[in-house]
């Protein structure tokens, strides 16, 4: 009797242990990532918030609580406010271009020909280059007086355009480089979505002899609307963080028209050694991005739901 009870108990314990294990095994799978995530994303996020309320010197590392001082200073810093507007302008210049142009290219190249395949490869190609190679290339295109564009415009009798020096055009020029560099991603995402649209809908539409524009508007775009939103959100998140192209092509000029928020953060931190100030600017960037991405998601969601 006792032995039986003992065996039962042992079996029960084993079962319980197995149950315990199967209950928690999953956690063991996700634990390594969670640790890294907490350590390298959440902890810096929180310490960044704390730092934004400190006067922190980058070089000495000394810090002192200053309340909202950094934020107050940011709110009257014309360069910071300018950088917010520059960044917004950049997002407005690039994101629609990525969505519209990406979709147009995808539509045109959504065919099984060799030519289309070659062009898909070509459009995606610059995406594998690093930002510094891209800016090296485009610097010689934009170089005032002697660059490709100015040489061309001079030959046409227009005189040098010096695009990167023109406060009205410099940011657009950087946006153009960005589109050239990374149109491949939206194009491929749209192609993937287009190929999942069932062909029979098109057949039916063609039988109704609907115009291609109508087909595009009533069938294609609604069928891939989810992807359009996804591409827009991805690009908003990416382009809000623009830094490399600006830093290397214009350095924030001319007349501060291209200084982006991330560039401001970098300069505050590493030129002026004001880590607390830079951390406060980072929080504003984070907040604006959250709002922008959320807003966009919400706006594009609405019609689909109704």
């Amino acid at each position: 009797m006792t032995t039986l009870v003992g065996v039962d108990a042992a079996r029960g314990r084993r079962a319980a242990r197995a149950g315990w294990w199967s209950r928690w095994a999953g956690l063991a799978f996700v634990a390594p990532f969670l640790v890294l995530y907490l350590w390298l994303m959440i902890y810096p996020l929180v310490s960044g918030v704390i730092m934004s309320f400190q006067y922190k010197d980058l070089l000495s590392g000394t810090s002192e609580f200053v309340g909202f001082w950094n934020y107050e200073d940011l709110s009257i810093d014309p360069i910071f406010i300018g950088s917010i507007f520059n960044t917004l302008r950049f997002v407005i210049l690039t994101v629609p271009a990525f969505v519209v142009l990406g979709l147009l290219i995808a539509l045109a190249l959504n065919r099984p020909t060799r030519g289309a395949a070659i062009m898909r490869t070509l459009f995606f190609g610059p995406h594998v280059l690093s930002v510094t190679v891209v800016t090296l290339i485009w610097k010689t295109v934009y170089l005032p007086n002697v660059g490709m564009i100015d040489a061309g415009s001079t030959a046409l009798g227009l005189g040098p355009l010096s695009i990167l020096l023109n406060p009205d055009w410099a940011l657009a020029a950087v946006a153009l480089v960005t589109v050239w560099w990374s149109i491949g991603l939206p194009m491929m995402l749209f192609l993937a979505a287009l190929q999942q649209v069932p062909q029979d809908i098109y057949e039916a539409a063609r039988l109704d002899s609907a115009s291609p524009l109508r087909i595009l508007w009533t069938i294609t775009i609604p069928s891939i609307s989810k992807m359009i939103v996804l591409v827009a959100v991805i690009e908003v998140v990416l382009q809000f963080q623009v830094f490399g192209q600006v830093n290397l092509l214009t350095g924030g000029g001319p007349n501060n028209t291209t200084r982006s928020m991330v560039m401001f953060i970098y300069q505050a931190g590493f030129q002026q050694w004001q880590a607390g100030y830079a951390a406060a600017a980072s929080q504003i960037l984070f907040a604006i991005m959250l709002v922008a991405a959320g807003l966009q998601f919400w706006v594009s969601r609405k019609p689909a739901e109704s």
């Binding site: 020096l165 406060p167 924030g252 000029g253 001319p254 007349n255 501060n256």
Partner: peptide, 12 residues
């Protein structure tokens, strides 16, 4: 320098 440059180039 940035500001002077903007002035000389007629940007402000």
């Amino acid at each position: 320098g940035e500001e002077l440059s903007a002035a000389v180039l007629g940007q402000k």
